[in-house]
Write a protein that binds this DNA or RNA. Structure first.
Lengths: 236, 236
DNA sequence: CATGCCTCATTGGTGGCACCTTTGCCAACA
DNA sequence: TGTTGGCAAAGGTGCCACCAATGAGGCATG
């Protein structure tokens, strides 16, 4: 999948430098500078710069070079920017933003899946819910995470809205980040298992309203948990 | 704003060719072909190609050229792709997808604005709601549209979630497309005016739950209207 | 018919060149 | 001292020629 192209390496390096705040807005870059710093020719630097420009991260001005733009100009929905921000200092804020976005989209995606999903998807959802229960009760967190990710991905991709599909990757990232950060209980709470099963059943039964409600319950709990954490943080 | 760069013109041309289905997935392009077709050098064609690759619209393979990818690989959240799809044959589907996305996000954005908006934003929202009522009752649809767009943009941009801001552009596009397609009544219904005013007041009062509920009511009505239209279409 | 080698089209990457815009400096002048 | 005007350099824009790598398709051989 990842081709060993010079561009990708340089692009990742510069992109991370920008998202990490290492190159704050207003910083002037030059093609020669990028080329020299990474040991690539001007051509490669130019093409990397074009990609960064396409991401809204730099703006090329003559005589001055490539000025780094602020986050308000970035394509913050782009997977690459999301990935870069998830590494580095912005990880926390990015995770919170993604969580909120996820909570906005997933109930509607579940409703859409209840309308549009094919029979084999509905079957897999039921199977996933079953396996989530068994692995969850067994306390196998990593396997549980994989099933959880798969279920949300399946819902987003079969929601009938092609703009929801790309969010599956960020949901996976959020879920992984959440367990990795120790935000998950040692063993999934029974309510979560019930609600995931409810979503799967509602989608399998083709009941959009029930699917939306069940998914809203899932994300609503996480939301409140996050708000609680925010409250603690604010209070400290 | 739009700099007269060669890249932008060529990029727009090729991008539109892909989104319009004029260059269906699997179509092989070549750098020399693009260059010759648009009268630009290989260098420019290469940089355009890099941007398209960044958008997930083509994949460059040696000996074969640039293969056009299917929509499942596109960065469908990217503003450029959205703009291209809004022109051309995909406009209808794109408008529907964007509407659904909007309905997912806007209630949460309103709640966020009630928490995070600054005092001048809250004031402007109240003012906008007032002027929407007067222009709406006067039947000035174009001015009403401008106020409507401004209100939603303000809510999204001051929602405290930097991932919601970029959606302001697409919301503007959706609203404009809706009135332009004649989906709006000749004069805004009183309920819409009331609900917009309710959102503005809730945000001004710092009541997130009320803001979210009021915005959900706004988008919920549009959603049902769309579903009704879909039903008619399916039945025909 | 299968297999393996060969060819060549096309991208990947480099370097150099002319041009143009913009900036920042510096000098001349009020 | 402040303002204006010109001037030179910096750096992106676009073009071209060149070579390396690679992989798809054809050809030859068993």
């Amino acid at each position: 999948m990842a081709r060993p192209s010079l561009h990708t390496a340089v692009l990742d390096s510069v992109g991370r430098a920008i998202t990490s705040g290492d190159a704050p807005p207003g910083t002037p870059l030059t093609l020669d500078g990028i080329g020299a710093q990474h040991g690539v020719s001007r051509t490669v630097a130019r093409e990397v710069m074009r990609m960064l420009e396409g991401l809204g991260m730099v703006r090329s001005r003559r005589r001055v070079g490539l000025v780094v733009l602020g986050i308000e100009d970035w394509n913050v929905l782009d997977p690459r920017i999301i990935r870069w921000r998830l590494q580095g200092p912005g990880r926390d804020a990015q995770l919170r933003s993604l969580t909120e976005l996820r909570h906005a989209v997933e109930p509607l995606a579940a409703a859409g899946a209840a309308r549009h999903a094919g029979p084999q998807v509905r079957g897999e959802l039921l199977d996933l819910a079953r396996r989530m229960r068994s692995t969850g009760e067994a306390g196998d967190l990593t396997e549980f995470l994989a099933l959880d990710v798969r279920m949300h991905e399946l819902l987003l991709r079969s929601s009938g809205n092609e703009m929801f599909g790309p969010l599956a990757d960020v949901v996976a990232e959020v879920l992984a980040g959440r367990t990795h950060l120790g935000l998950m209980p040692a063993s999934p709470v029974p309510e979560a298992l019930d609600q995931h099963e409810a979503v799967a059943r509602a989608v399998a039964d083709g009941d959009p309203d029930a699917a939306e409600a069940a998914m809203a319950a899932i994300v609503g709990e996480v939301r409140h948990a996050l708000a609680r954490r925010d409250g603690e943080r604010v209070g400290s």
